[in-house]
Amino acid sequence: MAIEARGLAKWFGDGAARTDAVRDVSVEVRLGEMLYIVGPSGSGKTTLLSMISGILRPNAGSVRVEGVDIWGLDDDALAEFRLHRIGFVFQDYHLFPRLSTAENVAIPLILRRRAWHEALVEARRLLGLVGLENRAELPPVKLSGGEQQRVAIARALVGEPDVLILDEPTASLDGETGRSIVSFIRNDVLSASRAIVVVTHDARISEFAHRILVMEDGRLTAVRENHAHAS
């Protein structure tokens, strides 16, 4: 099991001002699985994603990633765990505009204390995997939205994480580009030793998921196995 979350709850504020973002949600994500979390805005899916990826501490419940109780770790150990085991693709990519594309991709390796030159060589290899080897020296702002998304994916993958977290990966892309990106993730990034969790609003890409969790008002309201998923 890649991720095992039990009884997760998260609320913000206290007393009358308390808002329950996630209420008693349990989730399992298997290795080799691409799991979608869907639901309307404010349903708690981003909060859930943050808790299972070690970003936001839950008020209740536990999360085990690859058998490790991540919320039992101290802050430094948790940061180290994320750096080595989890890859993130943010909705707005969050690429550094003043760095080259290759330097952006190399960041996780640099944080792992890999030598600058060595990290760049590895980053260029990853850019080759996402079809951007000829864009390595350009700043991200010179790339299209789809290309920036692929750079963000390359950055998430460069550390060879066990779990890949994608937050609205198609939100800033046109339909065709979005589909091609998710298709690439599904076919080329997902492997038997990796799990992928995607938060999305985009129904056009649902065919790529193995399972889809539906959230509403902080609760898990449905789990759909996608038997007709694209392979």
Partner: peptide, 18 residues
Amino acid sequence: ENLEKFGALKAIGAKGRE
């Protein structure tokens, strides 16, 4: 200007002291 990027670095696994 770079605050969100520093936040992203934190999410990726950079420690506060780094």
